[in-house]
Amino acid sequence: MKKLKALLVLTGMLLLTLTLSACSAESTQQNALKRSQANNTLTWGVKADTRLFGLMDIKSGTIKGFDIDMGKEITKRVLGKKGHAKFVQVTSKTRIPLLKNGNIDAIIATMTITPDRAKVVDFSKVYFAAGQSLLVKKGSPIKDVRDLNKDGMTVLAVKGSTSAVNIQKYAPKAKVLELEDYAQAFTALKSGQGDAMTTDNGILFGIASENPSYHVVGGAFTNEPYGIAVDKQQTQLKNKIDQAIAEMRKDGTYEHLLQKWFGGIAGFDLKEASQQ
């Protein structure tokens, strides 16, 4: 099937590359809620390189983390007890195109709600309140974001993330290098490619928990409310997701999941993260 599809697409692509004209996409989206109900499956875009939120377990080949557990729980509440949650790996750069492509029904991947993004996707209510912070090697002279605002400072960020944009506001003098994903950004930090890595505190705490010679400094200098994204016009699905989150907050499931993943992390404020 895939081979056939590829062949068909080829012919179209050849013509398209020539015409060079950007006609806007026609909206042929089906109703995502109805489709997932029919398949009894909700397909989520999740991170696979982000400890605590979504990390590949190499042994079982499955992804584990807070976002995954949230996704599973919401699926059950949207589709019923037997509802099946499917997880597709995304990065900050690939998640919106994938949602727009219709490869996934919703994104639950440490995604901050921003006005710019809200123009292309619809967000649920906040399910995790993060804030941007810094990760540095222990013993580094950098104590907070102001220390980075000097010539010669280099900060590592991830392509397509809000932190890559924000850091240019908070430390305009620093040079920003954008890498493909968190794994790449952290390996780059370890290789001395930058003085600090910046992204949301929850993600950084996850990295620090596994790499004791690095720590999170300076506290949160932005608010990064995470939301679940669905494609525009998928209001029915969005409402169902909002309803599920509200239920989970009420019956203690949410609190339990938060405790499960972040309870043991030193320096992490559960109260702050659960703000609505």
Binding site: K5, V9, G12, M13, L16, A22, C23, S24, A25, E26, T28, P97, K100, N101, G102, N103
Partner: peptide, 8 residues
């Protein structure tokens, strides 16, 4: 390409 409706 997804912007012009071709999705893979």
């Amino acid at each position: 390409l997804p912007q012009v409706g071709i999705k893979m």
